[in-house]
Design a protein around this nucleic acid. Structure first.
Length: 301
DNA sequence: GGAATAACCTGGATGC
DNA sequence: TGCATCCAGGTTATTC
């Protein structure tokens, strides 16, 4: 599932290909890929054709490509199964292809940027850019202090130089929810999904249902350090791929699935203590943890 | 206003 | 073999 490392791998692959490229044509094959776009497919095609893309930027799991001189950007979210692929012009349609942008780059020549998405949870949109709340750069891959309006409510991710640890601690301790819910809340810290939340909690030896308000500042900072460690390792290994759902812009899978300690390892021994990893339902999804070294906190009476 | 839950969606895995 | 059901989960609208 595309979380921060997977989206960053896609952004890094996309950036050199789209920076300075002119959009020659747009083909919307499935308008469900434009659920975040204010207009219809024809509007999306008309608004982008002939425009010049400037770069590829990212905050959390959101990607955007600013349009030169327009104060707008093409915003992309990969959802559960979205892919952004670079293909040769005129290449055969990808399975589940939803949108195709034909572009011309001054150095790399003609290319096709293909948005494919099996489950159609992902989307593209043309959206206005607005100033960031803190005046810092919008995210990775850009020096400009702007973000698309659809991304403005998303917090910075823990690898962002402008991320403020103290603000995370304050926000987390103000909540009455379980710590895993906080990690998945993109308005507190972005880029973390179910996989890396489970992995960071395992590394920090924290039970996923620990009330965030009961955690000490020290424990929250330790968890944040483990979040960063897990994200950086996954990024170095090209992200986590369980099947063909997540690939980079060239269609290649990442290797971090081999390094997982808790997620998806139900019944297998905990790499730390040997007790079996358990899986429990949580927020319409699953939590994986070691019940031995991630002890459930005692109820406060 | 904050927190919890349901809905969106498709294809692979599983059970019968 | 074929059909039905379950499951995966990011985001957001709705409900409590």
């Amino acid at each position: 599932m595309p979380e921060l490392p997977e989206v960053e791998v896609v952004r890094a692959g996309l950036a050199p290909a789209v920076s300075g490229a002119t959009v020659l044509g747009v083909a919307v094959l499935d308008e469900r890929a434009l659920t975040r776009h204010a207009g219809d497919g024809a509007d999306f095609e008309r608004a982008l054709t002939g425009r010049v893309l400037r770069t590829a930027a990212r905050r959390g799991k959101f990607l955007w490509m600013p349009v030169h001189g327009a104060g707008e950007a093409v915003v992309a979210h990969l959802g559960m199964s979205g892919q952004l692929l670079l293909r040769a012009p005129g290449s055969p349609p990808e399975r589940h292809e939803r949108v195709r942008l034909d572009i011309a780059h001054p150095d790399h020549g003609d290319l096709a940027v293909v948005f494919a998405d099996q489950r159609t949870f992902g989307s593209l949109a043309l959206d206005a850019l607005v100033p960031t709340a803190d005046g810092a750069a919008g995210g990775w891959g850009t020096d400009e202090a702007v973000v698309p309006t659809q991304v403005a409510h998303i917090a910075r991710d823990p690898l962002d130089p402008a991320f403020v640890d103290a603000a995370f601690v304050v926000a987390a301790r103000r909540k009455r929810s379980a710590i895993k819910r906080i990690l998945l809340d993109q308005t507190v810290a972005s880029g973390i999904g179910n996989i890396y939340a489970d992995e960071a909690l395992w590394a920090a030896r924290i039970h996923p249902e620990t009330p965030a308000a009961d955690m000490s500042t020290r424990a929250l900072r330790r968890l944040l350090a483990e979040v960063r460690s897990v994200l950086e390792k996954a990024l170095a290994e090209g992200g986590t791929s369980f099947d063909a759902q997540y690939v980079n812009v060239n269609g290649q899978a990442g290797y971090f699935a081999h390094s997982l300690n808790a997620y998806g390892r139900t019944g297998q021994p905990c790499p730390r203590c040997g007790h079996p990893i358990v899986r429990v339902g949580f927020m319409n999804r699953s939590s994986h943890y070691c019940a031995h070294c991630q002890r459930r906190p005692r109820a406060v009476s």
